[in-house]
Design a protein around this nucleic acid. Structure first.
Lengths: 365, 365
DNA sequence: CTGAAAGCGCTTACAG
DNA sequence: CTGAAAGCGCTTACAG
């Protein structure tokens, strides 16, 4: 425990170059108050001696604080998913806060564009060096991104993406692929003529891009080369967040769809799958295979009692963790990070769920 | 980017306590060269002022190097799995090496107890402060653990566990549960009278604890309350690592098992599932559902061409990463970590595999 | 454009 | 048992 790693330091470079440590520092940080000649010489020697800066010493000496702001929806009954990313952000902060990082989360209401707007204003006022943003409203996002580019503020998109808006990195899930995963899980072992239902439970006030992309992925799985589907697929769009109304619409779709075939499986394109499970529970519908998204408590309960067969997890804690780390690596470690960070599409069953509930990123006590 | 976080430092404590910084340092590190009176006073003040040490400054000043050794099998054709944990170890090192950590991997041959023994000797000679060990041979492991306890060397078990041998932490997968996951995947949508085969492809030279536990978990899924199985299950033990012989035994089991039912699904209890897929490929056996372990290249190929339906991943990269971090957190950050770190039992299909191939722990470029 | 000095917060011998 | 001084490797004003 007592051995010293010999390393090349700034003073070594300075000596060899016949300049002062201060000048070497200036070269390292591209402060262009250095003559081209000196700069080249120093750079040459750094390369020769394979100089690696000691980041700990650098941070200690510079006494800078770097500020990260996160702008995400608050978790409400209708957006419970958003409890999780905040945990990941917190873990990341815990891990690296001694590098002089300050972090504040600015919450907005998922269903309220005005709150998004005002949160943006508060973030601007706080003037962070990097931002994790859940870009729910595209128009406001575009403006905000332009503002940040102007101020050279780094921006990471979490969970949602607009590929046409520039950003440092996107951390989330490939929605199309996740729909295909759901399709495989519902297709497995079914009879050729079994029908499947796709249920979109939407809230009309906000974008439902995810849901539609997931449905698209799901359907693509069953597409034959002639453009028809290999299996009967029916889509039900429920435009409501009222429990009773949702229940009624599901009932209509499953039970009383006239002469149509009873579905053998249901794909709910978001975390509201528990509504369908609730309904099946009351109508002894365990034979209908059910697949949905996200490890909400209500969903977990139904996974455990066999009403939900599979949940697809979006890895929300990891999303928070990675988003934060994307900023950290860029702003503190000066690394280059990938633009797209698609997290795994985790398939959760009653049997493996316990190992997804203890969070994935490494634990801090 | 230029704001200073005010914090309580050692000199503040020293001043308030009317002692020198050196003495505060002695109290912080429990060097018992301090009078009880001074110690209590200093501790009291530290608590009052909520002192948090600056770990960066501490590490910079102390100039210690901490050594970690990893003792794992080298990756051979018959133990390809072991390519992955080394990657995770490398990533972890990359992430924290500026804390003054040195790391060396000592490889042994999976099938050669002597090589394990000699690797242990080399590790002892290197005298690390912490060890990541894949404890393949229990008797030698027990001796080595005793040695390390004596020398106060921290030890983390990776991938394999002996619950009766003391250790800092175990990082791996719950083999029993993973068998249950496999069972669910093979059970899904099958007819009640479909038969399943469990294939253990063993190498007699080493322990096969994992395989047996996985089989146990698999079987438990089908167990009825009267002690019988809900479904016909047949086990085939293949004691060979020769491709042709394996193929012959599988053929016998699947095709020529006399009057017995043709199996509707096969569970291979380890990564050698590609052997079965190879066989099915030649015998147009895509209707037989096939589940096995680990993302070896041969397995991935068969996942993509639909011969393997599901692979269960042991998260090997993450295993390496977490094992290393367990030592880091304990020895450097002085944190308390959980004794059991069971990683997720990831279910991989053709549709989601791409997002498991880019490694899970956060990327360094 | 460049250097000398002081300092980041903590630790390490050394002296007493 | 305790203090004063020097130092870890880098950065920051300040002076010229």
């Amino acid at each position: 425990m007592d051995r010293h790693i010999s390393k090349v330091k700034i003073s070594d470079i300075a000596q060899r170059a016949g300049v002062s440590p201060g000048t070497v520092d200036r070269v390292i940080h591209n402060r262009d108050e250095v003559s081209a000649k000196t700069r080249n010489k120093v750079m040459e020697i750094m390369r020769e001696m394979n100089y690696k800066p000691d980041i700990l010493a650098s941070i200690l000496a510079s006494r800078k604080t770097i500020r990260f702001a996160s702008l995400i929806p608050e978790a409400t009954d209708d957006s419970l998913f958003w409890m999780e990313p905040a945990k990941g952000l917190g873990k990341a902060l815990e891990q690296v806060k001694h590098y002089g990082i300050d972090h504040e989360i600015f919450f907005y209401n998922y269903f309220d564009k005005t709150s998004f707007k005002s949160a943006i204003e508060r973030v601007k006022e706080w003037s962070p060096d990097g931002i994790v943003l859940a870009p729910l409203f595209p128009d406001l996002t575009a403006d905000f991104v332009a503002y940040c580019q102007d101020k050279v503020i780094q921006m990471v998109f979490i969970n949602m993406n607009y590929s046409n808006i520039p950003k440092l990195s996107f951390v989330g899930q490939d929605a199309l692929r996740s729909g295909m995963v759901a399709a495989r899980l519902l297709d497995l072992g079914m009879n050729t003529d079994d029908a499947l239902i796709i249920v979109n439970i939407m809230n009309d006030k906000v974008g439902n891009k995810h849901l539609l992309t997931r449905e698209e992925g799901f359907r693509s799985y069953f597409l034959k080369s002639d453009g028809a589907y290999r299996r009967e697929l029916r889509t039900i769009d429920i435009h409501s967040s009222d429990k009773r109304q949702i229940s009624a619409e599901i009932e209509k779709a499953i039970l009383t769809e006239g002469t149509k075939k009873k579905p053998a499986g249901i794909f709910v394109t978001n975390s509201r799958v528990f509504h369908v499970a609730d309904f099946l529970e009351k109508n002894s519908g365990t034979e209908i295979r059910l697949v949905g998204y996200d490890l909400l408590e209500a969903n977990i309960r139904h996974l455990r009692n066999n009403l939900i067969d599979f949940l697809i997890s979006q890895n929300p804690v990891e999303q928070g963790y990675r988003s934060f780390m994307a900023l950290f690596e860029t702003l503190v470690l000066k690394k280059v990070i990938p633009v797209n960070q698609c997290l795994p599409i985790d398939i959760i069953t009653k049997e493996n769920i316990d190992y997804y509930l203890t969070d994935r990123v490494y634990e801090q006590t």
